[in-house]
Amino acid sequence: MTETPHSDRKMLESLVCPVTHAPLAYDAAHQELVSKAAGLAFPIRGGIPIMLVDEARQLD
């Protein structure tokens, strides 16, 4: 897996959860944006965050 450039990481960190509007945490190991407030992890595919609830996975 490749490292996310600093500017891309800053962009990812500026996104908010589409459900709760709370901040998201970037999980580089899983290539996801995690919303602890909603209990969801949104995938990043090809460098593009997929911010659709139907595409998110439930956190344990």
Rank of each mutant, 00 (worst) to 15 (best):
D8L: 10
I44V: 15
M51W: 14
A41M: 06
S7I: 01
L33S: 04
D54R: 10
G39N: 07
E55Q: 14
P5C: 06
F42W: 10
D60N: 03
H6C: 06
T2P: 15
L24F: 05
R9Q: 07
D54F: 14
H30A: 13
V34Y: 05
P49Q: 06
S14I: 00
T4M: 12
A37F: 11
K36Y: 11
H30V: 01
D27N: 15
M1V: 09
L33E: 05
P18V: 01
E55I: 12
P43Y: 10
A41T: 03
A28D: 12
E13N: 10
Y26E: 02
V16E: 01
C17A: 03
T20E: 13
A29W: 07
E13F: 01
L24Q: 01
S35I: 03
R45W: 06
Y26L: 14
E3R: 10
C17H: 00
D54G: 12
L40S: 07
A37N: 08
R57H: 08
E13H: 00
P5Q: 06
A28S: 12
V16N: 00
K36G: 02
S14Q: 06
H6Q: 11
E32A: 06
D54M: 15
I48L: 11
P49N: 09
D60I: 10
D54T: 13
A22Y: 05
K36L: 05
I50H: 14
Q31C: 09
S14N: 03
S7N: 07
C17E: 00
E13C: 06
A22L: 06
E32C: 07
T20H: 06
D54Q: 10
P49V: 01
P5Y: 09
A41K: 04
E13V: 00
A41Q: 08
A29K: 15
D8C: 01
G47D: 09
E3K: 12
L52E: 14
R45M: 03
T20K: 10
L52V: 13
A38Y: 03
Q31H: 12
P23S: 12
A29Y: 07
K10P: 04
Y26N: 04
M1G: 14
D8T: 05
